[in-house]
């Protein structure tokens, strides 16, 4: 058993955990931060994504002791960080996911939103291609991804002052095919 000191969501926290525990186990079973989900537990699904020094990171493959001293952000830290920076409401990424209905069961959502947050921090106006790339390590079994990509685009649109385009994919497809858009 070792005493770990971790920097999580701008707090310094102490946790006792054996050496072979992953960061995900420490977050969920020592600190009660259950927003980071345990999915495949072997690095395929991205449900456990957190940010380590701003980069998307899989907590299920991270030995907890090896990230001591590094800045860890979990989904629980997004809203407080946004408020500390003077913002209102939740983080714009969270607001956009809510606005666009970018979830069904919600299991992949914390990881999706953190991957999206990492992308927008390093590239504030990504193309659809860049959004797809940045979220390609997060699997979603429900939505088919369309609304998730739209949520990130909506978030960017809001940030640059454009009106977020919330049209459904059917409307967009119909427009592309030159057919009138039915309401």
């Amino acid at each position: 058993m070792a005493r770990l000191q971790l920097r999580i969501n701008a707090d310094l926290v102490d946790a006792d955990a054996p050496d072979h525990w992953t960061l995900l186990e420490v977050l969920r079973y020592r600190l009660g931060l259950t927003g980071s989900k345990q999915g495949c537990d072997k690095g395929d699904c991205g449900a456990c994504t957190v940010l380590v020094d701003g980069k998307p990171w899989l907590a299920c493959l991270t030995l907890a002791a090896s990230v001591q001293g590094r800045a860890i952000t979990t989904i629980e830290g997004l809203l407080p960080a946004h408020r500390r920076a003077g913002g209102e409401g939740a983080d714009p990424v969270q607001e956009a996911f809510d606005r666009c209905g970018a979830l069904q069961c919600g299991f992949c959502q914390p990881g999706m939103m953190l991957s999206a947050r990492a992308l927008l921090n390093r590239c504030p106006q990504p193309t659809r291609e860049q959004i797809r790339d940045a979220l390609s390590g997060n699997l979603c079994r429900c939505t088919g991804y369309t609304q998730i990509f739209e949520a990130v685009e909506s978030c960017v649109a809001e940030a640059v002052g454009a009106k977020p385009d919330l049209r459904s994919w059917e409307a967009q497809l119909a427009e592309r095919r030159g057919k009138p858009v039915t309401p």
Binding site: D19, G43, L61, T62, L63, A65, S66, V67
Partner: peptide, 27 residues
Amino acid sequence: IVAGGTDLVPNMKHELFTPELVVSLAG
């Protein structure tokens, strides 16, 4: 030795490797 851990950690979870000591090069 563990570097990023993205291969060794799942392999250890599968009990393909069961070391007594793991030395992380991350620091």
